[in-house]
Design a protein around this nucleic acid. Structure first.
Lengths: 245, 245
DNA sequence: CGTTGGGTTGATCGACCTCAATAAAAGTGG
DNA sequence: CCACTTTTATTGAGGTCGATCAACCCAACG
């Protein structure tokens, strides 16, 4: 895993050979699938890794296609979504640096993934990765724990989608996102929003307009401040009261 | 795992010793976590298993409590749900025979589980089960694959909750449930509904009344027939058209 | 600058919720 | 097996939250 946040990182595929011994410098390693692996396992992973970079709004893989690779996001962020035949879209998640794409290792992609910004990732061939998981129980356990965590987040999202009002949805979304950013950059009140209002709406089961209205309502109530590229959470207590679990 | 569907099975905890060598007779083995395990692994699982039975509407475990056990449902069915402080409820899933409860192996239960009918299960101590998973890579891999499958179902449910109309929700629910019953009893058009309309509503993000109205609408349109304890799916094609992925 | 892709705001509409009544089913005790 | 209660399901009438439709704003960018 390269240090992909170097400003001059090329927007191209890097040859596999470049990836070796780069895990040691990886900024997201502590957050990602690679954490808590032994040296030998990390080395084996390293051998499979190929570092890739993507432009803004580029498709990484598409729903329904055969799945060739799994990815570990190293910089930037992406949206995971499902499309209905009539064009309705449900975003099933956003992946931030350190997040893993392809936990379910299925033959076909269950959703599409597009970047929200320029982004980079470690790419692993799916079949080889699956075999490595079978050969390295620590890795498999790590994947299992991550899948359990994702499952739990998905269930939280079901509550949000099924039983919360528009205002509660937006509050819960902002809190959840801030929490995830906190792991990455330690920020405590800033929540960058690399995704559009439309994306937020498609994640929360709302329209753009409703998301916008709820954001301005939260801002008018002095609970958040809308800043360029994100929000600042002013009143965590009231935000949590709105999003109460 | 006992043959729990014996009509005179007592509604009590069975001593651990009774469970040994019973996996061989388990009716749900082919469907459950136990499938695709080697003899030695199955024996190790068997040693941890304790067979338990539950009455109708009994709580198996509750949201927020420390998690002591994981379960494999052997008969009957249960609802998995999350409660908000104000009483709103979101059902995050129904478990049928063969389904596993506790995939995420977390310290605290993320949801509550209640039976919908009399039910029975194989109970395993969580800590010992987790250790066994680390010791038996086949078991771990099986758990991982099941978690990936559950995650995929959860994402499908997000689409249903976020982007489908009431009628589509009910149609998708009935189709999904029939598919799951088909694995168990091979039935092709019958979908038993052990859960109440309220449960269905809390699963789909609807009210009881709306569920009832949509069911009668589907029945009026000759797409389903409402029968005691369930529905019969008359027109799979039209039902699938409504639920189209 | 014009154009384009968000984002915000307002007015109106409708799908689903709420409240209420009734019906049907499932227990329960005699 | 039958009154009686309790629970669950259905149906109707009316209200509301969020969707829809439609302007308008604003910043980025060729």
């Amino acid at each position: 895993m390269l240090d992909v946040q170097a400003p001059d990182a090329p927007l191209t595929l890097c040859p596999n050979s470049n990836a070796s011994s780069e895990c040691a410098h990886c900024k997201v390693r502590a957050l990602s699938v690679c954490s808590a692996l032994e040296a030998e396992e990390l080395a084996a992973l390293d051998k499979l890794a190929r570092h890739v970079s993507f432009e803004k709004h580029q498709t990484i893989f598409a729903q329904g296609e055969a799945s060739h690779s799994v990815f570990n996001i190293t910089s930037g962020s992406v949206r995971l979504f499902k499309l209905l035949p009539d064009g309705r879209r449900q975003i099933v998640g956003f992946a931030l640096p350190g997040d893993f794409l392809g936990l379910s290792l299925s033959e076909r992609n269950a959703f599409s993934v597009e970047t929200l910004s320029i982004a980079s990732a470690c790419q692993f061939p799916r079949a080889a990765f699956s075999e490595l998981a079978d050969a390295k129980p620590h890795l498999l356990r790590r994947l299992y724990d991550m899948a359990g965590h994702e499952l739990s987040l998905a269930q939280d999202q079901m509550v949000i989608l099924g039983r919360r009002t528009a205002e509660e949805k937006v509050a819960a979304f902002l809190l959840g996102l801030r929490k995830r950013w906190a792991r990455i950059d330690g920020s405590t009140v800033r929540a960058p929003l690399p995704m559009s209002r439309q994306d937020i709406g498609d994640f929360l089961g709302l329209t753009v307009e409703t998301v916008s209205r709820m954001m301005t309502k939260l801002a008018r109530d002095k609970i958040i401040v809308i800043v360029p590229d994100g929000v600042r959470l002013l009143d965590l207590a009231r935000l949590e009261a709105l999003a109460e679990t």
